[in-house]
Design a protein around this nucleic acid. Structure first.
Lengths: 351, 351
DNA sequence: TTGAAAGCGCTAACAA
DNA sequence: TTGTTAGCGCTTTCAA
């Protein structure tokens, strides 16, 4: 069906190796100009296209990279895919929207089965959760590994992440300065290391600044009707007003807005809201700019992170020697309306 | 480096083909139980994993599918990837956020070079824009084609789309019933067939219902600061109030909300807003539920569309004979606050 | 300057 | 029940 090297060779009466030389070699031209011309003409006329499967097998080099993340991140996907493509690689992307360890493992194995040259990975679980066989493959020096945000111990590779500590510091300083006298952390109770890390940063920062800090953990991932229980948990946990609630992701923040508004709680007067993520939505807008009130947020710069991850990968791929050092990108803090306190002495809402 | 069939064969003293039989054959067990056990044990112990590149080459069957769309659609990607995976295929996804014909062509060719078995594609340009070589490859009966929303003539394949006609009909009926006396279509002036199709539907429907209808086309894609010019175009085009503006995509709708609010135009009192798309955002929310006011919208059901596209592809892959018929999914209309007119005799805004 | 040959890892037909 | 063989399409020595 498809036109192969052999077809081109037969068409212009040379050997397959000559055709391969002319069509695919970047450096040398050990073929006579005349033959060269004939080969190029034949190839064009027949519509020859190289078969990536066979070149990958022969060269032992697939040109594939794989991205595996525990959530759907269009912004990161887009920039990484484009950068990879620009540099001659093809990125296979997989998002695990819900926690699903089996699928995560299957995807990692499948990627490795496809002989990917590199893997971008934000591991959802801890080291012990992954099968030994998989870890062996990962440790075997074949595929390069760039961890996104969180590294697995004892697995070689470098890391590109976002530095939450400074972001949290900025956020807490801001809300204290605005006059909030209480802080609450609103998260999900999933055992996911990064999340508890953020929680710790917030608690530490509040302690140092003498701000009381409550923690509210929701049992299940917020579905579309989780708002009611959410607002109740929020308000019950709040002892002093005005209170600033740090929502551990954008989704929680939107839920909180809806829920608080339904109960006529004044944002930012009685409750201030800080979102973590501030995702790019529709390619143009940050989530925090779309809601009413607009949401004060820690807005992770996934475009930079993605670009950096790719360049780190290229480094790993090019010289086998030293892994480049981990990078932690700064996390911009964006104050918006949801924490612009203008009630010096607010009254607590009637719960 | 990696453990191959040969390694396993050598390890337990049988031939490679025996190992292949035991490890990879689904049907027969022509190998003695004893040998079988030894092989399985060796494979497990050595951590054998099949090389997808070589099996694909040998079997002439890659198990790859490719999705190429002219915009970033996380919802569609997620459902299609999962469905494909469930059915034993691996989906490679590529989004072209900005119009980029060269990249689109390159991605199509690259997918075919990888010997994908099927291609899901929403062509951005018209037939004549694509090189003849590419069209030949697409017409050659190798890779199956499922067009998303829009088909290219003279290229075999089936289609899965959304039926805008009924959706538009519902929307226009709704705004007329709400009391809007004028309609405006707000779109981008990109030459993209689907868009002008929607525009036509709206104009036709308005004509039949005796509603005057203006068209506003923006020259460039809306960037973050396009709002000002946008609102001006809108308001200048409006001759009668209250006016319902049909925004051809979510992004335009959000821009319109911002712009109109900045100019103190009352939504829905003076201007009603209808969004097309109503994308799922953060996996939980529809865009129209996040904004204030909430946006009346035509909300495309990408989850159904994706699932259907995959099942169509499987049909194409399984029997070569007849292409399944095209499908047009119904397009749910969701009235929300942005068209809930409550001013019977509104005054025009001061422009 | 060229072609023959070997082989990447695997599978499937064939022969033993 | 098994091993041998011949490739899939391509690249890269090696010998002519």
């Amino acid at each position: 069906m498809a036109v192969t090297l052999k077809d081109v060779a037969a068409d212009c009466g040379v050997s397959a190796s000559a055709v391969s030389q002319v069509l695919r070699s970047h450096h040398a031209c050990r073929v006579s100009p005349a033959a060269r011309e004939r080969i190029l003409a034949s190839a064009r006329r027949l519509g020859y296209r190289p078969n990536h499967i066979s070149t990958s097998l022969r060269r032992q080099r697939s040109g594939l990279l794989s991205l595996i993340l525990p959530w759907n991140n269009p912004e990161l996907m887009e920039v990484m895919e484009q950068e990879a493509y620009r540099l001659g690689y093809r990125l296979m992307t997989n998002f695990l929207t819900r926690p699903d360890l089996d699928r995560e493992i299957a995807l990692l194995n499948n990627s490795l089965d496809w002989q990917v040259e590199g893997l971008f990975w934000l591991p959802y679980a801890n080291l012990s959760a992954y099968p030994e066989l998989l870890l062996q493959r990962l440790r075997g020096n074949k595929a390069r590994l760039v961890f996104m945000q969180r590294r697995l111990p004892d697995v070689p590779g470098c890391l590109v992440g976002t530095d939450y500590r400074q972001g949290v510091r900025d956020a807490i300083a801001h809300v204290q300065h605005q006059g909030y006298r209480h802080v609450a952390f609103l998260g999900t109770s999933l055992k996911f290391e990064i999340k508890s890390q953020r929680q710790n940063y917030i608690q530490t920062e509040c302690r140092e600044r003498g701000l009381p800090c409550e923690t509210i953990l929701l049992d299940n991932l917020p579905g579309s009707d989780a708002s009611a229980s959410l607002v109740l948990s929020c308000l019950q946990a709040i002892k002093m007003f005005p209170c600033a609630i740090f929502c551990d992701n954008d989704s929680l923040a939107v839920h909180a807005v809806h829920a608080l508004q339904k109960m006529n709680v004044d944002i930012p007067g009685q409750v201030g809201l800080i979102a973590n993520g501030d995702q790019l939505v529709l390619g143009h807008f940050r989530l925090g700019d779309i809601t009413t009130p607009s949401l004060t947020a820690l807005s992770t710069d996934y475009t930079s992170q993605g670009r950096l991850a790719i360049s780190r990968m290229i480094q790993l791929l090019q010289d086998d020697t030293a892994a480049p050092p981990d990078v932690w990108l700064p996390l911009p803090f964006r104050p918006r309306a949801s924490t612009a306190l203008n009630h010096p002495n607010p009254t607590p809402p009637a719960v």
